[in-house]
């Protein structure tokens, strides 16, 4: 594929004896929104987590194959895993603000990599809070614990926190599943804006969401990639039988 930023080749992942991901071969286009679609338990979250190597936190996970980021293999990289993870911001199913103030949540990623200058941090925190439309809502309470925000605000804070380490890719794992419709739409609109500067990989099982914001769709079922195509092609002219069945709501 042209302009792909991530290429996954022959990826297999076992959790103990369970074969979770089977021979995954996909390409993710740069500065587009790629949606990984599929019923729950199909391995889409695991695939997302293997991208920034969170899967290796579990000792019973065995992984083989290649995940290439700009042609460089992430799985067998000599590069520090923290450097790899910083290239990708993660947005989880529910917001998990760090146990600190709103300000410190955004500054956290910068601080742990050694940026301590107050002025620099101030400007970055403001910039990313503005980018996630949060600044006006929180500018007077930056020192308050992040847990005092609403769930929707927390999720945008988590997005700001992820963007602050200047990643190339945003990994989002059903980021709107815990949010109210209004907050969900805000996140979706934000993604549509952000794809000018970032590559976004979004895991979801909501067809409407995929249809609305995806450029590229990867459909997974039982640990395998069934079909991958541009969004139009995927919804209007699915090739595989399983895809058609899923789009018609025959299974979830």
């Amino acid at each position: 594929m042209q302009n792909s930023i991530i290429d996954i080749k022959q990826l297999n992942l076992y959790y103990g004896k369970q074969h979770i991901l089977k021979d995954i071969n996909i390409s993710i286009p740069a500065k587009k929104i790629t949606v990984i679609l599929g019923p729950s338990g199909c391995g889409k979250t695991t695939l997302l987590r293997s991208l920034n190597r969170l899967t290796e936190l579990d000792a019973s996970v065995k992984i083989s194959g290649e995940i290439l980021l700009n042609g460089q293999d992430l799985l067998n990289s000599t590069e520090d895993v923290t450097t790899i993870r910083k290239k990708m911001g993660l947005l989880a199913q529910r917001p998990y603000p760090l146990p600190m103030s709103i300000y410190n949540n955004v500054a956290y990623g910068l601080r742990i990599s050694g940026r301590r200058k107050k002025k620099f941090l101030n400007s970055r925190v403001e910039y990313y809070l503005r980018q996630t439309n949060l600044w006006d809502e929180v500018k007077d309470r930056l020192k308050e614990p992040a847990a005092t925000l609403s769930i929707g605000q927390q999720q945008r804070l988590c997005l700001a926190r992820g963007l602050a380490v200047d990643p190339q890719i945003i990994l989002a794992d059903e980021p709107t599943s815990a949010l109210d419709p209004h907050s969900s739409r805000m996140i979706e609109e934000k993604f549509a804006e952000l794809k000018d500067s970032y590559t976004i990989v979004l895991v979801t099982h909501i067809l409407r969401q995929a249809k609305n914001i995806a450029d590229h769709v990867i459909f997974m079922y039982m640990g395998q990639v069934v079909e991958q195509a541009d969004v139009r092609e995927f919804f209007e002219n699915p090739k595989e039988q399983q895809t058609k069945a899923y789009l018609q709501g025959q299974f979830y």
Binding site: L57, G89, L90, I112, L171
Partner: peptide
């Protein structure tokens, strides 16, 4: 929660 640690790790923390 495990996810809290993962949030920190995915921001590049050791």
């Amino acid at each position: 929660p495990k996810e809290l640690s993962e949030a920190s790790l995915s921001l590049g923390a050791t």
